[in-house]
């Protein structure tokens, strides 16, 4: 009677272990399949909500910040007087450093034809401070805007900038559509 009991216990333990292993393997398989098939999510800034507070430059765990200024060329007016490039009240619209609004001179002004200029962002220099974005939004067409560059972003579980963003402009978006780029000039009417 006692021997019969011991055998049953062993069988029970063996069966239990096998069952647990089976469940674990199935669980791992399901998790792997789910990870392979479901959408990944990444952090991104909604330009419509961004208030250009400057926190993207100071609070990103990356140094310099993974947030960079993006230029929507189709929205840009190619103005001689660019509110995102020049400090307010400059005496002459010249490219001298004293006239730059950008603290790192990350915007390059290129002459196209009188009186139009193209403004190019040098991303290596951009720290994502949004000064140019504020100037462009306040005094221009709003073509400059911030985006998180996913080749630089660590995609932290909790984005350090999202935590301090005063306008809740940063949220997770599907990795298949990782950028929220501003619209086009012809799409809107009186901008």
């Amino acid at each position: 009677m006692a021997e019969e009991k011991i055998i049953k216990r062993r069988e029970f333990i063996n069966t239990g272990v096998r069952f647990a292993l089976g469940i674990s393997l199935a669980g791992i398989g399901v998790a792997a399949a789910r990870k392979a098939t479901t959408e990944k999510w990444v952090w991104q800034i909604d330009p419509a909500k961004c208030t250009q507070c400057g926190r993207c430059a100071t609070d990103c765990v990356k140094s310099p910040s993974a947030v960079k200024c993006i230029h929507a060329y189709e929205v840009c007016g190619y103005c001689d007087l660019c509110g995102g490039y020049f400090k307010p009240g400059v005496k002459k619209m010249e490219t001298g450093g004293e006239n730059h609004l950008c603290p790192t001179a990350a915007i390059q002004r290129k002459f196209i034809e009188e009186p139009y200029f193209e403004y190019v962002i040098i991303e290596e220099l951009c720290i994502g401070c949004a000064k140019c974005v504020k100037g462009c939004s306040s005094f221009g067409n709003g073509s400059l805007h911030l985006q998180i560059r996913h080749d630089l972003c660590d995609n932290c579980n909790e984005c350090a900038i999202a935590r301090v963003c005063p306008s809740d402009a940063i949220s997770r978006v599907p990795a298949s559509q990782p950028y929220i780029i501003k619209g086009d000039f012809h799409g809107g009417s009186k901008a």
Partner: peptide, 19 residues
């Protein structure tokens, strides 16, 4: 201290309120 309303001035903020 990390809350947006409790933080100090940001050196990068461009304030256009004066205009």
């Amino acid at each position: 201290g990390d809350r947006p309303d409790k933080r100090g001035e940001n050196p990068y903020e461009y304030n256009v309120d004066q205009f």
